[in-house]
Design a protein around this nucleic acid. Structure first.
Length: 126
DNA sequence: TTGTTGACTCTGA
DNA sequence: CTCAGAGCCAACA
C-alpha cells in the first residue's frame, strides 16, 4: 500500500491539464480578501493535482483574468520567491493592502489569515 | 525525442 | 529552529 505524502499527488489518473488550471483558478477566486491559502491546500481541494502544479498555474496566469493569485502562498506562511522578476514583492504589497500582516521573518499567521476553504476542508488529509 | 526548470511540500538529520 | 534530499509533473528548448 502506497503511503500518501503531502506534497505529492494521490494515486489515480490526472485530469487534463486545462481542466486542472480551470479548477485551480476557480478555487483561487473563492478566497476572500484578507485571507490566504497554500499551494498544497489548493492542490488538495482541486484533487489529483500537486502543489507544484498550482504554483505553475499561478505563474502561467496572464493579466486581466480576475484571479486573486496573491492570496496563494507557501506552506510556511511566506510569499514564495520568484526566480525572476519582482512578483513576490508585489504580492506581499497586495496582501498587506488587504490587511494580511507579516511578522519580521516575513511569515503570516494562518490562524488569523488562513482560508478555511469553500465549505469545510480536511486539513492534513487528502 | 530527451533534458531542464520551477510562485511546492514532505521527511529526516 | 534550519537544511538537504526526494518526489512531483507541465511547460519549454
Amino acid at each position: 500500500m502506497r503511503i500518501l505524502v503531502r506534497g505529492q499527488r494521490p494515486p489515480g489518473p490526472l485530469v487534463r491539464p486545462e481542466k486542472v488550471y480551470e479548477r485551480i483558478y476557480a478555487l483561487v477566486k473563492k478566497i476572500p480578501p484578507g485571507k490566504v491559502a497554500t499551494y498544497g491546500q489548493i492542490a488538495g481541494l482541486t484533487g489529483r493535482c500537486t502543489p507544484r502544479m498550482v504554483g505553475y498555474a499561478m505563474a502561467a496566469l496572464k493579466g486581466g483574468q480576475d484571479v486573486p493569485w496573491q492570496r496563494v502562498i507557501n506552506c510556511r506562511g511566506m510569499v514564495s520567491q520568484r526566480k525572476k522578476g519582482s512578483g513576490a514583492l508585489r504580492q506581499r504589497n497586495l496582501l498587506e493592502a488587504e490587511g494580511v500582516r507579516f511578522d519580521a521573518a516575513g511569515r503570516t499567521d494562518f490562524g488569523r489569515f488562513g482560508w478555511r476553504g469553500p465549505h469545510q476542508i480536511r486539513k492534513h488529509r487528502w
